[in-house]
């Protein structure tokens, strides 16, 4: 089902949680609502679910306005952050609850229960109570409960935040595979940029209730619309250096031996004379000649296949992410070349 939000605003007493948000999700897409905590992503999800009513604007499912349609009539499956499994019911009763509420015939209930529990591999757990399950198992049961009524829309609210790292990746892939198999329109909320990048078709990045960028993960990473988007995505985060731009030439105050030769920055926004130069850690290369600047190694962090270097030049600090084919030691002076860089308008201070 296609979902369209038009000029949605949500205010709680004095605070505005979401302001003038508009976007469209195509049928069968998996969208991630991403942003720091308190950015309005959970509120947006609640409004799509029908648990909250927007103060202004309209939500359309397949061009049908949803205002006045209660959550119980919206045909949505939802997985909550802490799963919200009914503790007094067995796993089986939990999963069957939506069918019971929709008065599905008993024979069909059994059939669907069997199908969904096979799909999520929870046949062994059906007679247990939620309290007797591990986090990952509860997660699967919650997904089964959300999907058994075969909804047109699936909503996931921070579905992986209570799981350990290994399980998180495993379930992440499972959910993506399931979503693509069922071709169900899915919105999922997270504050983890890696999670968002890895499984969504498109990411919707929010900050303080305002939409920042809505695009594919690649596009968002490669052509961020502003400094916030650029710094929110990527780990380690993008390096930010204050610079000035005159006649297309970038100068970095306080950096000696800066040679902006053949540097073609990506312009992100209306860049004035005072600007910020953004460089992703993986775009810094160590070269023997043709360098843009030099810096000293201040700290080394090895992560197996790659190595993070903290580099100092005067008062500036840069982080570089390099493949571990060369041993570096603290105090080394390296010649650095910037493979790619971004220019952002200076946002007062930095």
């Amino acid at each position: 089902m296609k979902i369209r939000l038009e000029n949605i605003t949500k205010t709680f007493k004095t605070t505005t949680a979401v302001s003038n948000l508009s976007f469209t999700i195509e049928d069968g897409e998996m969208i991630c609502l991403l942003g720091p905590s308190g950015c309005g992503k959970s509120t947006t999800l609640s409004m799509v679910a029908g648990l909250e009513q927007p103060t202004e604007g309209e939500i359309y499912f397949d061009d049908v306005p949803m205002s006045g349609v209660q959550a119980e009539n919206r045909d949505i499956g939802m997985v909550f952050q802490n799963y919200a499994l009914y503790p007094h019911m067995s796993v089986q009763d939990n999963i069957l609850f939506p069918l019971k509420m929709h008065h599905v015939p008993k024979a069909q209930r059994r059939e669907r229960l069997e199908k969904i529990s096979n799909m999520l591999q929870i046949q062994e757990l059906l007679h247990r109570k939620p309290g007797q399950l591990s986090g990952g198992q509860q997660q699967r049961v919650a997904i089964a409960r959300a999907l058994i009524k075969e909804p047109k829309i699936l909503l996931l609210d921070e579905p992986f935040s209570n799981l350990d790292a290994r399980l998180r990746i495993e379930l992440r892939d499972d959910i993506r595979a399931l979503q693509q198999k069922l071709k169900i329109t899915t919105i999922f909320v997270t504050h983890d940029q890696e999670e968002a990048m890895s499984i969504s078709d498109r990411i919707l990045l929010m900050k303080n209730g305002v939409l920042q960028q809505y695009s594919t993960p690649q596009e968002m990473y490669r052509t961020p619309v502003n400094l916030f988007v650029a710094s929110f995505l990527g780990n380690p985060p993008i390096n930010k250096l204050p610079c000035t731009l005159r006649d297309g030439v970038i100068t970095l105050p306080g950096i000696n031996g800066w040679k902006p030769d053949a540097l073609e920055p990506v312009f992100c926004g209306e860049v004035q004379e005072q600007a910020v130069l953004g460089v992703r850690p993986e775009d810094i290369l160590v070269v023997t000649e043709g360098e843009h600047l030099t810096a000293q190694v201040a700290a080394i962090q090895t992560l197996g296949k790659e190595v993070y270097l903290r580099l100092h030049h005067g008062e500036h600090t840069l982080t570089a992410c390099l493949s571990w084919d060369h041993d570096y030691s603290i105090g080394d002076t390296l010649k650095l070349k910037l493979r790619k860089c971004y220019l952002f308008p200076s946002e007062g201070g930095l």
Binding site: A49, G50, L51, Q70, A71, E72, N73, R74, I76, G77, M78, F80, N82, A84, L85, Y86, P87, H88, M89, F97, P98, M101, H102, R145, A146, K149
Partner: peptide, 29 residues
């Protein structure tokens, strides 16, 4: 009673009466 149970029940299609008999009452046991 965790309000999320009611939210989950609403999305599962439970109307006020059903929510009372399937969530509130058992939780108040």
């Amino acid at each position: 009673i965790d309000p999320r149970y009611y939210q989950a029940a609403r999305l599962d299609g439970a109307r006020a009466m059903n929510r009372f008999f399937h969530i509130t009452l058992p939780q108040l046991g």
